[in-house]
């Protein structure tokens, strides 16, 4: 009987995912209402629960895709994968205002460059402090501090060891997950309550998943503005880190 239930859940993976996420959200909004009197947003709790489930999934299976590695929850991988995530992000633009985007466009571009350079430099400094001296390794770790995609792309292009590439991915993952968790708590402090600061926020953070989760937990109305700039970050990072920023590192560290 349990076997047949398991196979039904696994065969209808995406449907199972809808049900699991629905239950998680119901529980989260209930907790938000009863325990925090709505102060901590329901979606913030849901994202935390999601990350906790991902941790459990990772420990149980030893895989890299969190809960989605457990067979009956494999549909979570499709539902939360890049394809549907990007479609839903694009759909949020349906409610966005052209005027706001035009007004904040310049700040968004400044934020993109500042975000990549600052995260990169922090990665570089930390790599130096931990005793790395090879410019290729330093640059790869700096790229990882930008996003977990920039790190491996740069590392592969420059020929870094797989151990360093793994570290750069880990740094990017820490960043992405921390942005999801911390954004709702710091939103007020950093003035994240209008389309302009949301575009700046997206450009500075750059991690699409972090920004997507962080803004969803703060105020869903801000999502399109933050996501719009954030999606340029990884590509721009892959452009300037292995070229301009790598030469900079080589000049000073080589």
């Amino acid at each position: 009987m349990i076997d047949s239930l398991q196979s039904i859940l696994a065969e209808n993976g995406l449907i199972t995912a809808f049900a699991v996420v629905g239950i998680t959200m119901y529980l989260s909004y209930f907790l938000s209402d009863k325990l925090t009197k709505g102060r901590l947003h329901g979606s913030a709790i849901a994202i935390l629960l999601g990350l906790l489930l991902a941790y459990i999934g990772g420990v149980v299976t030893g895989g890299e895709s969190g809960l989605a590695d457990i067979q009956i929850f494999s549909g979570i991988g499709l539902m939360g994968g890049a394809m549907l995530r990007d479609l839903a992000i694009v759909a949020t633009a349906f409610g966005a205002s052209i005027e706001e985007i035009k007004k904040a466009g310049f700040s968004g571009i400044v934020a993109l460059f500042a975000g990549i350079v600052v995260s990169f430099l922090i990665g570089v400094v930390i790599a130096l402090l931990f005793g790395y001296t090879d410019p290729v390794e330093i640059t790869t770790i700096g790229g990882g501090a930008a996003t977990y995609i920039v790190g491996p792309v740069v590392g592969t292009a420059l020929g870094a060891s797989s151990e360093v590439i793994a570290l750069s991915i880990a740094a990017g993952l820490v960043k992405s997950i921390l942005v999801m968790i911390a954004t709702p708590f710091f939103a007020k402090l950093i003035g994240l309550d209008n389309p302009r600061s949301a575009m700046v926020f997206g450009g500075l953070m750059g991690t699409t998943s972090g920004v997507a989760g962080g803004l969803a937990a703060t105020d869903p109305k801000l999502v399109p503005y933050g996501a719009m700039t954030a999606t340029f970050y990884t590509g721009l990072g892959c452009l300037i880190v292995p070229s301009f920023l790598y030469f900079l590192v080589r000049t000073f560290a080589g």
């Binding site: 996420v21 999934g57 539902m79 939360g80 993952l173 997950i177 998943s209 989760g213």
Partner: peptide
């Protein structure tokens, strides 16, 4: 969007 983001968080490494 939000449900999808929650599914996304559940499959992070």
């Amino acid at each position: 969007y939000i449900p999808i983001v929650i599914a996304m968080s559940a499959q992070q490494n």
